[in-house]
Design a protein around this nucleic acid. Structure first.
Length: 317
DNA sequence: TGCCAGGCGGGGT
DNA sequence: ACCCCGCATGGC
């Protein structure tokens, strides 16, 4: 059990949408519709529970170690992007072929950063896999290598495995149906343990990841978006290429698509790409293109299958 | 059943 | 600079 070590309240930015920020691409262990659990990789054994209290966020910190208020405040601020100003970015999306929904309904959405290591795991699981398949892979990693914890007061959640756990428990990796992604995951884990990945400077972070076998442009940039909240280099996979080509009449080539994204969204191109997946429910390519042709570019309300917005509601895949 | 998939790296041109 | 293939698996 993790004891509660402190609680505090932080001011919520005016445009901040707690529900959206907590819900998007999240698992049921970490969001239940009301409480968001920011869980840090297992050695630290720290969980920050965040709840919406109107003008403020209520934070409860649970940990095996002592934590300072500044430390907790900073961790929450980074995870939720509380000091990030996206007003002008969302402004720019008005009338956008794919993102006008985001301009209207998602102005308070921020990326929920999971930290560099978890971001890398997520990104590797997305390689050559549909959204659902990729998140299933990550789900199994949590189930088999994560550390379930109970918080003082009775809440429960799960801590993501640290890089060293992934490294030391390689026996279980082949059972998780990760396919060829296992070797990339292991080399990334080793690089993190040995301190070979720069964690502060986004350009160095991306370059260090790309030096790993099995990590290319898409994986490194997605990890940069989710781990460091650095959006200027958009992660571009085949899905993005085809989606952008269909929606905006760009030539379906990676280079042209990147040029288009950077010209259109500037330093927020990576965030825009993430939003594409949200408004299209991360549908597989053929269905995504069909939806664009029909103009169905808002996330669906009812969720019979997991979508980026509804993933947290699914206890079992 | 067989075939394809939201990546990557290596080898060909 | 481009094209093409194989890679491990799940899902249809």
């Amino acid at each position: 059990m993790l004891p509660r070590v402190l609680s505090l309240r932080v001011n919520k930015p005016e445009t901040f949408d707690f529900h959206l920020t907590a819900a998007v691409y999240n698992f049921h262990w970490h969001f239940d519709g009301k409480s968001l659990y920011l869980a840090f990789p297992s050695e630290q054994a720290t969980v920050l529970r965040v709840r919406d209290k109107g003008r403020e966020l209520e934070i409860a910190a649970y940990s095996e170690q002592r934590l300072g208020k500044d430390q907790v405040h900073e961790a929450v601020e980074h995870a939720l992007g509380l000091s990030e100003d996206l007003d002008r970015f969302y402004e720019r999306l008005t009338g956008d072929r794919l993102l006008s929904y985001a301009a209207q309904k998602m102005r308070g959405f921020r990326v929920r950063s999971v930290g560099p290591w978890v971001a890398v795991m997520i990104a590797i699981c997305q390689q050559r896999a549909s959204f659902i398949r990729g998140w299933k892979m990550l789900y199994r990693i949590y189930e088999s290598l994560g550390r379930p914890v109970t918080l003082e007061g009775g809440d429960s959640t799960i801590l993501p495995p640290s890089p060293s756990i992934v490294l030391n428990r390689q026996d279980v990796l082949p059972k998780l149906s990760l396919g060829f992604r296992v070797s990339a995951l292991v080399s990334a884990a080793r690089a993190f343990v040995e301190g070979e990945i720069a964690l502060e400077d986004p350009d160095s972070f991306e370059a260090d990841l790309r030096a790993l076998r099995g990590v290319g442009q898409y994986t490194a940039r997605l990890a940069r978006v989710l781990g460091l909240r650095s959006y200027e280099n958009p992660p571009i996979d085949d899905w993005t290429v085809k989606v952008v080509a269909e929606a905006y009449g760009v030539k379906p080539r990676q280079r042209d698509v990147e040029e288009f994204l950077v010209a259109r969204y500037g330093d927020y191109a990576g965030l825009a790409v993430l939003l594409y997946t949200v408004v299209l429910d991360a549908e597989p390519l053929t269905r995504a293109l069909e939806r664009i042709r029909k103009g169905l570019v808002s996330p669906s309300e009812q969720a019979s299958k997991p979508t980026p917005l509804s993933l947290w509601k699914f206890v079992k895949f």
